[in-house]
Nucleic acid binder design. Sequence first.
RNA 1: GGCCCCAUCGUCUAGCCAGGCCUAGGACACCAGGUUUUCAUCCUGGCGACAGGGGUUCAAAUCCCCUUGGGGUCACCA
Length: 526
Amino acid sequence: MLRGGVCADLLSSSPRRGLSAVATRLRIELNLSKTAGDSVRVRFAPSPTGKLHIGGARTALFNWAYARGRGGKFLLRIEDTDPERSTAEHERAILSGLRWLGLDWDEGPDVGGPHAPYHQARRIGRHKELAQQLFDGGKAYRCFCSRERLEQLHETQKAAKERLAYDGLCRRLTRAVSDERAVGEPFVLRFAVPSGKTRFLDHVRGDVVFDNVEVEDWVMVRSDGNPTYNFVVVCDDVDMEITHVFRGEEHLVNTPKQVLLYEAFGRAQPEFGHLPLMLGADRKKLSKRKETEYTALSDYIEKGYPRDAMVNFLCLQGWALNGSQEIFNVAELVSNFDINDVSKAGAVFDFEKCNWMAGEYIRRDTLEHVAQMCAPYAVRAELMTEAEIRERHGWWLAVVAGEKERVHTYSDLVERLRYLFVDDEKLVYDPGAEANARKQVARIETLKAFLDWLRPRIETGVDAGALRDAGKAWIAERGLKMPALFQPLRCALSGLSGGPDTFDIMSWLGPERTLRRIALGVERLA
RNA sequence: GGCCCCAUCGUCUAGCCAGGCCUAGGACACCAGGUUUUCAUCCUGGCGACAGGGGUUCAAAUCCCCUUGGGGUCACCA
């Protein structure tokens, strides 16, 4: 029986959702037995058949936050039961993606643990043992139906507009006949779904009930002897003593199959939580979309999205700290996250807001850290070498500071600095910037006069602050408007229509290149 | 098509379980103004939603039912 205390308290700690009462009642009804000392054990179980999807990343994050907020354990298990598609490379990438997010796991493929191995494929002996056990107990049966028959069956079912499911033909075979045919014929092992209804506690959906007639006798073990996902996931969750299963909503319809398995094993079912899907702009599952460039976490990492921003934003898809605070850190996530607060409806991934948040994190971050994070992008773009960045640290900090307020990602920032590194003669004028400059009718005289004025003042270096004051005074003396000088000047120096203060740009460029670029501007803007 | 899930501004959401405090709050985006040599930042303001219909109730965004709409899933993939 349930000891009311711990679990009930945990659930009722969050009054914002209506699931607390349902959960507590259902726990008792379903006899989700928890023995004293049981603590939360959750897992993230990716299959290494592709990149880590941002939806998967969020699932991992929620599982991790749930465990960490409750002193539980977070395990990582690799679901590599599909040898065709699983690769070690994908696995490495997934692990590094999870680490990038700041997640750590108490048990897993690389850290080991009391339930090793954590690669599903390496647990196949155990899976077969359990399958045999179910077969011996009459809870699974051999099916000799050919693929052709199955295909045909589905065809007729489709034509009759019925549900597509196995009709249970081989379930009626006697054991003697089954044994006999097993000698020479290939077969799969199907789970014998009992009649009745299957019920489970879902912390996101509430009380979920399926009629077992809707659950087909699914394949547990393939004809080549390899067990299938729905079977091994339960075997491993049982063996690893998983208490809560939080995963994407696409698994909701698998759950009755799995719950039935727990019952067949005579084990208490875990508590579930099916997270709302992450949707594309077309409101379809993000992973189903064709364009994959923005769906993998690695895409965001490469582009230079700040880690904390991604964590923050991913959590916002389906969960909110409260009604008013958008920006929160990992500590706040851990101490406030509750699976009961996750919303049921799918969330359209809003790239605009994601970009805003990334920029917000960069703006709030220290200059030193942003400069450090940007450095690799500058190196990759061959703007500077690592050594140069170290040697000219002050200069690097200054130029990064100049763009910090203006960008969304680290790579973004570096791209905006490119004009500083090109040859003066090869500087490209942005059409908009040039148009702005040309609007100033007296641009050439002004630029020439400014050049003459400037030359003696920067012989020993550019003091942006002092120069700025003097420059503005110079403009005022000549009765000019600010844009009359600054538009052409900015274009000549950077070729851009926007950007940092022009005197700052001069100080980064240095006297020689400043004078050269202005002189070139006089020619090019004529 | 069967089954399942879902439904508050264009988008992410708060509010819903324990109905009144909601002429529905915040954020992104958008629009307008201010600051700035430009762009960006920043500040101010604006636009903008309870899918529809029934019920229950003194009272419904909140509870119930139906309709509509959207999604998921129907493999010897996971």
